[in-house]
Design a protein around this nucleic acid. Sequence first.
DNA 1: GTCTATATGTTGATAGAC
DNA 2: GTCTATCAACATATAGAC
Lengths: 209, 209
Amino acid sequence: MTPAAQDRRGAYAKGVAKREEILQTALEVIAREGYRGASVKEIAEAVGLSQAGVLHYFDSKEELFTEVLRRRDNLDRADFMPGEGWPGGFEGMRESFVEVIRHNGDVPGLVQLFSRLAVDAADATHPAHAYFIERGRELREGLSTVIAEQQRAGTITDRIDAETLARVLQAVADGLQLQWALERDVDMAATMDALFAALLTEGGPARDA
Amino acid sequence: MTPAAQDRRGAYAKGVAKREEILQTALEVIAREGYRGASVKEIAEAVGLSQAGVLHYFDSKEELFTEVLRRRDNLDRADFMPGEGWPGGFEGMRESFVEVIRHNGDVPGLVQLFSRLAVDAADATHPAHAYFIERGRELREGLSTVIAEQQRAGTITDRIDAETLARVLQAVADGLQLQWALERDVDMAATMDALFAALLTEGGPARDA
DNA sequence: GTCTATATGTTGATAGAC
DNA sequence: GTCTATCAACATATAGAC
């Protein structure tokens, strides 16, 4: 009985496991050595393979790293954003969003990888190009839906478009990662939370404690 | 008579001019080919030198690119932020800040270079590391001074610390560049201006028209 | 002093043996 | 599926011409 072809390659049990092991090890190497030190050779040695052995599972280094990010990003979003949108209205979104950012502070390798790929993916030929566009649109759509809802309810300021504010929130999250990568004493979660607090209306029904 | 040693190398007229020419050409190549296609060889050919000829003026490719950014960044800041801080209080700062961002929309190569170096400079050994730290601190200091001033005057919201808000504004500027590099239809200046508008107090003395 | 030409070591990518 | 061998592109260093 052939296993389900869940991917072009590595559909067999051993291949899948090895592929997973490579992705996990790559992330650890990035966290330890930084993105620059994370060559395919370095990752291959850490996982106990030759350079060509690793590239058997992935078309290129860029594709490998794109896959590392995609997996972890999907896992995070599943953990912190169950279902289609955010539960609990504005406060639910605020808490989830801040929690994801707080969690990022525990995985420097992933943050560095995200920032680096976010830059490289501007090139239309980069394997992560479509992924970043799609991811951004989904994120902003989810955010602006909740924002527009709360603006109608009067809980948060309506002095800015919901779509524009959603774009701003995404920019803050990404920009804070750059600052944090440069100087680790930046408190990304607290900064984001303070911005959320400032966006609440003074006399809104769901006034913050 | 020996010319003033304004730099370790290139203190002679011809050397200074060549150095300047390389920096200018490098920027043009980046704008045309993108950061990835901008090898030293490519730049060398564009400027009419050999690869080693270019590297005579700069210790490394990273140092060359760092220098390109530093020069242009300094020029921009001189153009849009005369003197020590921003003139014209909050509205002056708002206009200058938005104007710089609008101007960035005209130099995609520089934006790409900035984003790329901002990521790479997280590594403490990168030649731009200290520069980015210093630049961020100066920017946030200038911003938070004006913000605190206007908060006391009651023109903008005091529901967030001046220092925190300054950090947020920097993050928005950097984050918007990532979004814009990915999808050029993003209006960075308009988005930033909308955020500034949302930060104004409803009944403040310097109410927006 | 400034440049050309050349050599070295590293990287990512690919072909083919087992 | 994993390996060895090989390739081209790259950054870097240096020898020597002018």
